[in-house]
Nucleic acid binder design. Structure first.
Lengths: 260, 260
DNA sequence: ACCTGAACACCGTTCAAGT
DNA sequence: ACCTGAACACCGTTCAAGT
């Protein structure tokens, strides 16, 4: 079902290729123990290396910076070779995002023994941490469970904690979706690049936030009483604290519903 | 501060143009009462018409379908004229999203008299409804409060309800952010197009969801106990019910914190 | 099977020029 | 002030061909 980690999805794999041609001569590689190929004439990739390269570029320059050409250049090969591993740029983004979630999956592998809601909190925080310093990630996480195996597994793991609260299936479904929705929504929002500021490097995120705070302070207090009520909290606030604050509200509601 | 509704932002408005040339002759328009111009030689826009055109295209074919060329064609003019009103495609998306939120703002103009949490619920639902059937909207809402006036005002309005709960500024800030984050995150997630399915029209959203449900049922129950626990709820579920389920958890937590 | 270079059809943005 | 057509520099994707 989710076997496209090896086969390029969207590509019909009819065997037009004669098996007798297998293992073609590898020039200059016969007894080489070093990884770097002596002859640079032909690049060789794998889905893992393609995704790793994509994540590198995404981390450096965001979704906008990930072009197929840039990726091919980084891999040291031609553009078209990328299409052997992914069906297109969209799937590349989906798989790159999912590969990062694989890390979250590993990091939370042993969660599940304690208080269900506390465990839920730990997983949600791990997920948040992964997304928040990867601005590009939020938009591509949990988009297509058929392509994104890790996303599905993480969803399952979160659901399993909720399940231990022994609510109805419907309540479990809603609670799990709420946690996931809150995490992704908040993280994506926080990770969003200030319009071309951080990307071009003209402005740091702190500088941008300071500018926004100044802008808020300049608003008419009569028209924006709430903004002025919280401006000191907004100014210089910590994203993680803000995230935890909301998460704890959600979990408190859940605890109430579960009667614990 | 937020005056870019009239002046194209990002464009320095130095007056190189001689004021004496004002109100040039309008050929064939002297006593015409009908809106359609007799001479098609020169198109005339406004920021409103540009954004309206953009929203139309976005509704029809999503963010991917909104190209400057498509927009210019719809407006019946040249490509470059769009750049008189917006600084680029990014700002076009931001402003188009914000213009839709203007509708939510109007629809919730008289909210604020009842129970604060109930009022919060009403606003959140109105926001959800606006986003959910506009898949493109979620990604561009509340991105830049300097450009997006309506987003800021909506944020203020939500905050004002929270303020009535008389929490600390910090708690108010976190609660408001949580509600907004949850709404946007959930709505964006639900509005997300199934990879090129609904866009190309090959697959309806219902068909896609049915396919996903079938896929989930095929998963190993030993490996995915939660998925199997909720699969009947997932299959054919109503997005709005799901949203409300999570929202009520969040609001219950908030009510608890406020001691009401 | 997997990689390549070149080509195709697009796209955002800019610019000199028009009114 | 506001609109235009043409140009520039890109980009995703495909394809015939190589190994």
């Amino acid at each position: 079902m989710f076997d496209n980690a090896q086969a390029a999805p969207g590509t019909a794999r009819t065997v037009w290729w004669d098996g007798a041609m297998a293992s073609p001569p590898q020039p200059g590689e016969a007894s080489s123990r070093t990884r770097a190929p002596r002859t640079r004439s032909r690049a060789s990739h794998s889905l893992e290396s393609v995704l790793a390269g994509a994540v590198e570029i995404l981390d450096e320059s965001g979704a906008q910076g990930l072009t197929i050409r840039a990726l091919a250049a980084r891999l040291g090969g031609g553009v078209a070779s990328v299409y052997w591993y992914v069906s297109g740029r969209d799937e590349l983004l989906d798989l790159a995002a999912d590969s990062v979630l694989g890390g979250v999956l590993e990091a939370t592998a042993d969660v599940g023994g304690g208080d269900p809601i506390e465990d839920l909190r730990v997983i949600a925080l791990a997920m948040f941490d992964a997304i928040v310093d990867r601005p590009w990630l939020g938009a591509y996480v949990l988009r297509d469970t058929a392509t994104q195996i890790h996303s599905l597994q993480l969803y399952e793991r979160i659901g399993e904690q909720v399940m231990r609260l022994e609510l109805t299936p419907r309540q479990s479904f809603h609670a799990t979706s709420a946690v996931v929705g809150y995490v992704i929504g908040t993280a994506a929002d926080m990770g969003q690049q200030p319009p071309e500021a951080v990307v071009s490097g003209e402005l740091s995120k702190d500088e941008y936030m300071a500018g926004a705070a100044a802008q808020w302070r300049a608003l008419d207090p009569a028209q924006f009483p709430y903004i002025h009520h919280i401006i000191d909290e907004f100014d210089g606030h910590d994203d993680r604290d803000q995230f935890v604050g909301g998460l704890d509200l959600l979990l408190a509601g859940l605890r109430l519903q579960a009667g614990r």
